[in-house]
Design a binder for these strands. Structure first.
Lengths: 155, 155
DNA sequence: TGTGAAAATGTCAGGGC
DNA sequence: GCCCTGACATTTTCACA
C-alpha cells in the first residue's frame, strides 16, 4: 500500500482527478512530459491500485434524488454475527453511498441518498427490521455546500 | 433540472457510473443500441448537466491520507456575513471533501480527509480561528465500510 | 437510428539520453 | 533506468442516408 509517488505521478493524479476525460496528450503537456512515460505511469498507478476506477459524476437532483441524510447509529450489539448482517445490509442497498464504523460514542455513520423523506422512511424501516439497532439519529441535509471525491494531493 | 430520462438513458448512466473508461462501442452493446444514438444521448446528458464530469477515483491510503473525520458543527451565528466567511473557509480547504448545511439541532456536517490525527488538529485549529463556531464534535472513522459516488438509478 | 469515413487518440516498438 | 520519436491500431466524432 505504501506506494512511492514522485512529483510527476502526483501531477498526473491531480490532472486525472480534475478531469479524467482529458486526452493523454493534454495530460502529458500539463505535466511536462511526452505521452509514453505518462501512459506507463498511469498503467502502473492503476495496477498498484492508486487509481481505483474511472467514473462519471452525476447530478443527484437530475435523477430525482432530492434528499440526502446522514444517519448516526448506536448499537448494543458487537458480536461478529450481528456485524456481518449489518454490513451485508449496507452493502446491498444502493441508497447507502457511504458507511463508516466509528470510534467512540456513535458506532456507525451512513450517508444515504433517496428521492424524498418518505423514501428515507422506507429505507429506515427496512434497515431496522433487518438488524437490531439501539439508537438512530437522522440528519437531513438542506444544502450541499460541497461534495467531491477529489483528494488533496500534497506536493 | 427536471430532465426526463428514458430506460436507455438510465442504462447509459449506469454503465458510465460503473466504468467511465469503457469505449462507446461497449456501452452501445450493453444498452442494446449502436454507437451514434448512444453518443448523441451522452452529449445531451452532459449538456443538460446530468453528467457533471468524469473523474478518477483514487485510493486515499495510497496517498497517505489515513484519517477520515466526520465533523458535526453547531454555531450561534446565523448572519449572512458569518455564513459567507464559513462557506469560503470550507470551499478553500481541499481536505474538506463534503460539507452540508443541516436541518435541526446540528447546523453543519463535514467530511474531512487528512494524513493523521495531528493533521486534523491543524485543520481544526485553523478553522476555528477563522470563523466563530459554538460547538464541534469530531467522529473518527475506524473503517470505511462503503464509499461510492454511484447513485442509485431507478428503472 | 444506423452506416461509414475522417480526425483524434491510445498503444507500443525501437533507439537515445 | 527512464524518456522521446514516430508508426500503427483503435476509438471518437460527425456528415449523410
Amino acid at each position: 500500500m505504501a506506494v512511492s509517488l514522485d512529483a510527476t505521478d502526483r501531477k498526473i493524479l491531480r490532472a486525472l482527478q480534475a478531469d479524467a476525460s482529458q486526452s493523454l496528450e493534454e495530460i502529458a503537456r500539463q505535466v511536462g512530459a511526452s505521452k509514453t512515460p505518462v501512459w506507463n505511469r498511469i498503467r502502473k498507478l492503476r495496477e498498484a491500485g492508486v487509481i481505483r476506477r474511472q467514473t462519471a459524476v452525476l447530478d443527484p437532483e437530475a435523477l430525482g434524488l432530492e434528499a440526502c441524510f446522514f444517519v448516526l447509529i448506536r448499537t448494543s450489539e458487537h458480536e461478529a454475527e450481528w456485524q456481518k448482517a449489518f454490513l451485508k445490509a449496507l452493502l446491498d442497498r444502493d441508497e447507502v453511498l457511504e458507511a463508516h464504523r466509528l470510534a467512540g460514542d456513535i458506532d456507525y455513520i451512513l450517508k444515504v441518498r433517496v428521492e424524498n423523506a418518505r423514501a428515507y422512511d422506507v429505507f429506515y424501516q427496512a434497515l431496522i427490521s433487518e438488524v437490531r439497532i439501539y439508537n438512530v439519529t437522522a440528519l437531513l441535509s438542506m444544502e450541499e455546500i460541497k461534495s467531491t471525491f477529489a483528494l488533496p494531493i500534497p506536493d
